[in-house]
Design a protein around this nucleic acid. Structure first.
Length: 214
DNA sequence: GCCCAGGTGTTTC
DNA sequence: GAAACACATGGG
C-alpha cells in the first residue's frame, strides 16, 4: 500500500460520482445530531427522526437541552435505539453548552479526546463531528471503509479503528476538504456497490483495483 | 420471518 | 484486548 493507491482510488470515485456535498444537513448542530442518530442505522430512518425534530422545533442546542429526554426519545423513534440515543444527544448537548465557546483553542487531537469522553461518542462519531461540524482534518472510518478497503487488500477486517484511520491519514494530504469528500464517496460507493451480501459487481468503479491471488 | 443499516457501552473471559 | 451482548426501527 502506498499513497498513490489511495489517491488513485479517490480520483476514480470522484470521477464516477462527483462531489457529494457532505454532511447532508442544514446546520452544524444538525450535523452533530445526525452523527449520533446514524449509529448503526440506515440513513433514511435518521431522516425521519430529523424531520420529527424539525417539526417539533428541537433542532437547536437550547431547545434540545430544555426538552425532556422521554419526549426527545419519542421524536427520534424511527432512528432506532431511541432511548439510548436520546440520552446520548443529551450528553453531547451538555458538552456543547459547557465547552462550545472554548473549543476553538483546542488542537484536533485534544478536541478528539474531549469528544471521546462523552458517553455515546465513539471514534466514528467523534471523527464525524470533527470533520463535518468543526471542519477539522480528522478522517472518518466506518463499516463501509473497512469492508471496501479490506476487500481491496489495503487494510484487514480485524484492524482496529485507529489503525485504519492511520492508514488514510498517513498516506493522504491532511486536508479537510479531501477527508470530507473521500469519506462521503466511500459511503456512496458502499451503499450502491458494497453491501454485505454484494461483494463485487461489474459496474463497481473499483473493480480493477482488486488483486485476485490464489 | 430474516437480514441489514454511515456504532457504542457494558460485561465477561 | 477482544469477544459476546444489548440497544430498536424500517426497508428489501
Amino acid at each position: 500500500m502506498n499513497s498513490t493507491s489511495l489517491m488513485r482510488i479517490y480520483k476514480k470515485l470522484y470521477r464516477r460520482f462527483g462531489p457529494q456535498y457532505w454532511w447532508p444537513a442544514r446546520t452544524r448542530f444538525e450535523v452533530i445530531v445526525g452523527t449520533v442518530l446514524t449509529q448503526n442505522t440506515a440513513w433514511r430512518n435518521v431522516e425521519k427522526a430529523i424531520h420529527n425534530l424539525r417539526s417539533d422545533k428541537l433542532l437547536s442546542l437550547e431547545k434540545m437541552h430544555a426538552v425532556e429526554t422521554c419526549r426527545l426519545a419519542r421524536c427520534i423513534k424511527p432512528a432506532g435505539y431511541f432511548n439510548i440515543k436520546a440520552q446520548r444527544l443529551k450528553n453531547v448537548v451538555q458538552f456543547l453548552r459547557h465547552d462550545a465557546a472554548c473549543l476553538k483553542q483546542f488542537d484536533t487531537i485534544s478536541l478528539r479526546k474531549r469528544l471521546l469522553e462523552i458517553n455515546g461518542v465513539g471514534p466514528e462519531t467523534a471523527d464525524s463531528i470533527l470533520l463535518y461540524a468543526f471542519d477539522r482534518p480528522s478522517f472518518v472510518v466506518d463499516a463501509y471503509t473497512k469492508r471496501i478497503f479490506s476487500r481491496l487488500g489495503i487494510v484487514r477486517q480485524k484492524d482496529s479503528y485507529d489503525c485504519v484511520k492511520a492508514v488514510f491519514e498517513n498516506n493522504l494530504a491532511r486536508k479537510r476538504a479531501l477527508f470530507n469528500e473521500y469519506h462521503a464517496l466511500i459511503v456512496r460507493l458502499g451503499k450502491e456497490h458494497c453491501t454485505k451480501n454484494n461483494p463485487a459487481c461489474t459496474t463497481c468503479p473499483l473493480r480493477s483495483e482488486h488483486t485476485y491471488t490464489r
